[in-house]
Structures are given as C-alpha cells and as structure tokens.
C-alpha cells in the first residue's frame, strides 16, 4: 500500500480530532478527540515502521528495523492510559466543583 494513503488517512483523522477539540465544548468529548488525534499519530508511526522495514528487508532478510517504532506506539498507549486516568479524574473534580463539563465555564484564565 503506498505510504501516502496512510499519511492522508492519519492527517484526516488528526484534523477531525482538531476540529472536534475546537467545536465541541463538552470536556469529555474534547478529551476523546485528543485520544483520536493520538491514535492517528499511532497509525502513522506503524505505517512508517512497516515502510522502513520493507526498505531494510531488501538488504538484510533478518533485519528488525521498524520494531522500535511499534514499541514507541506501545509506550504511547501506556502513557495515554495514564493520561486518561488523570484527565478523567480532573474532569470529575471539575464537574463536582462547577456542576458542568462545559469548557466555556473554565474561563478563570482571564482573571
């Protein structure tokens, strides 16, 4: 499969995530859109790992080039899981304090 397809797909997913972050005001949806963006990047990383692997295979049949990228994705997932647990805890606390998850109420930065 041409790498461009994967690139375009990842960019499209990422942009949809950005759009969601910009347009939605529900903090949970915003959070989910961020996860979507993370996944778009993950997909791109895997695609590139396979691309490099294919290139390296031509020289060395036993090469392991590309495995690092997939491990990188693995670590991203680890970090994302930790991030989600903390982020959701924050959202819960926010809901407890202002009884809403609307980020437009989070305008304390102005003051």
């Amino acid at each position: 499969m041409p790498i461009n397809y994967y690139i375009f797909l990842a960019v499209a997913l990422f942009s949809i995530g950005v759009m969601g972050v910009l347009t939605r005001r529900n903090a949970i949806i915003v959070f989910m859109c961020i996860e979507l963006m993370l996944n778009a990047v993950n997909l791109l990383l895997v695609a590139f790992s396979k691309m490099h692997h294919a290139t390296a295979l031509a020289g060395d049949a036993a090469t392991m080039v590309g495995a690092e990228a997939q491990l990188f994705v693995f670590f991203i997932m680890v970090v994302a899981a930790a991030e989600v647990s903390v982020g959701l805890a924050i959202i819960v606390m926010m809901y407890r304090n202002i009884h809403s998850v609307d980020i437009n109420f989070l305008n304390r930065l102005k003051h």
Binding site: P2, K50, M51, A54, V65, G66, A67
Partner: peptide, 11 residues
Amino acid sequence: NQMAQIKGGDI
C-alpha cells in the same frame, strides 16, 4: 512515494 509493507514482515 514509498510502499508500506502490508502482508508479511514479522516485526
């Protein structure tokens, strides 16, 4: 335009 290996490759 390079190709990403789809089937095969066992990394």
